[in-house]
């Protein structure tokens, strides 16, 4: 494949045809990612996109850069390991709300806390799309479906609040249908040092067809991003879930190799463990 210099958005698209349902929000996210990578003037060989399992987690296959379609819920440990081993690379971890907040929930907390310089994109459709429509941690308690008659009655997980409370250094919400806004937000997230979290509301038109209406519910931010976690928390807790924009840009120093680590070479480990 001939890559232009600088690489164009289309250079980041692979030749594989996506198998997502027509109308799925993830098509928009794919486009936004290719535009963001072109905007960042990255080369495909300098970028790795790591995912877990789910419809959304198919995204590395559709991108032309390094990619790894990992184990369900384990994309963040993989991304963390890669970034620590290859700090020169741009590492983007991507997946769904089931992958990231259910089976991968514990990794999410600790990835925020570790504040390693990578970007985590969650395509949140408030459902498990790939396994045919089970409720996820972000599903509304009263979502009535064949698999959850009358709704789960459970309080939804609030990803942005949890990210903020756990130490993420950049917290934002985007809407997949706003391709320009989403790609700008990905650019900002990648540029911001430390762990950047972007929740992208991305409709599942098959199991949540009512989410096609999200495009009329979305509204722009009313305030500027803040570096004050208390203000950010108040704002996130009081919004209606459809407020998009950058909510928090923190100033925590990202984790660096060597922080709190006594030995760095494999040989040093041998010595340390020698009996």
């Amino acid at each position: 494949m001939n890559i232009s210099n600088p690489a164009k958005a289309s250079d980041f698209k692979s030749d594989l045809k996506p198998v997502w349902c027509p109308g799925c929000g993830d098509y928009h996210v794919l486009l936004s990612m290719t535009k963001a990578l072109a905007e960042l003037e990255c080369r495909p060989e300098e970028v790795a996109v790591i995912s877990g399992i789910g419809c959304s987690s198919r995204i590395p296959a559709y991108l032309n850069c390094y990619g790894f379609h990992g184990v369900h819920g384990r994309s963040l440990p993989l991304g963390t390991g890669l970034k620590v081993a290859r700090p020169d690379m741009t590492v983007i971890v991507a997946g769904g709300d089931g992958d990231g907040f259910s089976i991968g929930g514990n990794h999410f907390l600790h990835a925020c806390r570790r504040n390693i310089d990578l970007t985590y994109i969650v395509m949140d459709n408030r459902v498990y799309g790939m396994t045919k429509g089970q409720p996820s941690p972000t599903t509304e308690p009263d979502w009535d479906s064949a698999l959850s008659p009358g709704g789960t009655g459970l309080s939804p997980f609030h990803p942005l609040v949890i990210a903020l409370a756990s130490g993420a250094n950049f917290v934002a919400r985007a809407f997949s249908g706003d391709i320009k806004g989403t790609s700008n937000m990905i650019v900002e997230a990648v540029r911001h040092p430390g762990f950047s979290f972007v929740e992208i509301l991305s409709p599942c038109v098959t199991f949540r067809p009512e989410q096609r209406e999200w495009k009329s519910a979305i509204h722009p931010p009313t305030v500027e991003p803040t570096d004050d976690p208390a203000r950010a928390a108040r704002r996130i807790m009081t919004d209606d879930g459809f407020n998009v924009g950058i909510l928090y840009r923190g100033t925590r120093r990202p984790y660096r190799i060597g922080d709190g680590v006594a030995s760095r070479e494999v040989g040093d480990l041998d010595t340390a463990f020698a009996i």
């Binding site: 929000g25 535009k35 706003d178 320009k180």
Partner: peptide, 18 residues
């Protein structure tokens, strides 16, 4: 991509994916 002066969120002649 950000230097294009589109009036909307992407180029005007793009069929709406959603």
């Amino acid at each position: 991509p950000s230097e294009f002066k589109w009036p909307g969120t992407e180029g005007p002649e793009l069929a709406a994916l959603d």
